[in-house]
Write a protein that binds this DNA or RNA. Structure first.
Lengths: 231, 231
DNA sequence: CGTATAGTTGACCTAATTCAAAAGACGTGG
DNA sequence: CCACGTCTTTTGAATTAGGTCAACTATACG
């Protein structure tokens, strides 16, 4: 839901090369040049012509679209192992910004599409990748529409948790700011903050610090994410 | 935005085989068996295993997901020439329902995926198809979130118009019910109805009958769809 | 440390939902 | 063709979730 491929860890892991992602492109990615991004730096902007595809080696990125009124809609968060920039044909349909410091491998698009034209197995891979992204986007669509702020937020946390769970008990490192959450869930920072506070008061989560979140009652949280009432 | 490929006409045309869609699968689709659906009949349900892919020959279909509270989110509308059912891997991530009477060509999935594994050009095609769907879904995501009812509705009408425009002046046959619009835009039927009435009063559209819509002022309508105020 | 940025909290307001009910379309069968 | 019941659409009144504006606090960073 946050992104297509599942990822590991919380301190933005050096995750082993994506299992489901890129076997046929893997050798090419291995050779690809590397690029480092500071937080808020962009890999590319909406409207750019797509010159490369990227694999995230380290850090968290967002794909986002700008709305006519200047606000942005975050489409998804991407984590180490994920590929981004594949959707581009002529123009990029969304921008890609680093949330944390990040490291990317950059594979020139023409190499990728050449491989795609030559080798059917690459096609199979990429189709799977895109199908997963599509399922993801559609899921997000279903979550955003017609759900309460609390449901959205609960679903978001549960989802984050699922990605980070293998690691360290019930404690999540929140690398994502309130404002990024808001732009992802289609809410305001105030609403995010208020909802977090409510969850805290109900002892469903704890926030030892602003960017560290502990899940106290996963059952309730999952309940909330599927429409149960809070009170 | 309503769907990936653009389509023609309004009385649900027998449109010539999709240009951008399926050249490498075309011969297979041509041989494929046909299936007719009555309105509200399903091609497949969410959770089904994906046995076929379909090309719409006639009629309008929706892809939708069911929400935990029983409501549904319409993901997109699909028109003649469009392919559906490709996103499925193990399980279908959304259901496909006929809005109007519809006719489909059904290509068994195993044939399609066999072709995909054998022929790189099929991969290229399908990747393009999926990339378009993805762009579409993401666009929809951006429209639904954080936009007013009026903006959503205006954008919807403009989009419908773009698909049907080539045909008959400013008059659209609305095969889509208020309730389907609502489920697509994430609004209630009441809000849809009220917004349509407002547009009518402002002489931006006319509704000679409930399912026939005339655009009187496309400029205003487009303005509304990109955030201009109504008054 | 001091300044800027991010997060929280409160009061108020508005757009859209909900509930309720009327009016209009549509098909069925007499 | 008309009467009838059903379903869709429209309209109205009341409610509310979330947005906006504004002030305050906490955190990060040079």
């Amino acid at each position: 839901m946050l992104s297509a491929a599942n990822y590991a860890n919380s301190d933005i892991p050096q995750r082993a090369v994506n299992g489901s992602g890129a076997s046929g492109l893997r050798p090419f990615l291995a050779d690809a040049t590397q690029r480092r991004l500071a937080p808020r730096e962009h890999a590319f902007y909406e409207g750019d012509e797509g010159s490369h595809i990227y694999r995230i080696e380290r850090g968290i990125m967002t794909l986002y679209r700008l709305l006519p009124d200047g606000r942005r809609q975050i489409i998804c968060f991407k984590f180490p192992g994920d590929l981004i920039g594949f959707e581009a044909r002529e123009q990029r349909t969304c921008g890609a910004e680093a949330v944390t410091e990040a490291e990317l491998r950059c594979l020139p698009m023409h190499i990728a599409s050449q491989r795609l034209r030559q080798d059917a197995s690459v096609g199979v891979e990429v189709v799977e990748l895109l199908a997963a992204e599509l399922a993801d986007a559609r899921n997000q669509l279903a979550v955003l529409n017609r759900r309460s702020a609390m449901e959205k937020l609960a679903a978001f946390i549960v989802d984050l948790w699922r990605r980070e769970a293998p690691r360290q008990g019930a404690c999540l490192a929140l690398h994502i700011s309130r404002s990024d959450m808001a732009d992802f869930l289609g809410l305001t920072v105030e609403t995010i903050s208020r909802s977090l506070t409510k969850l805290k008061l109900k002892r469903i989560i704890a926030l030892p610090e602003a960017h560290r979140l502990v899940i106290l009652d996963m059952g309730r949280l999952e309940g909330l994410s599927t429409g149960e009432a809070l009170d």
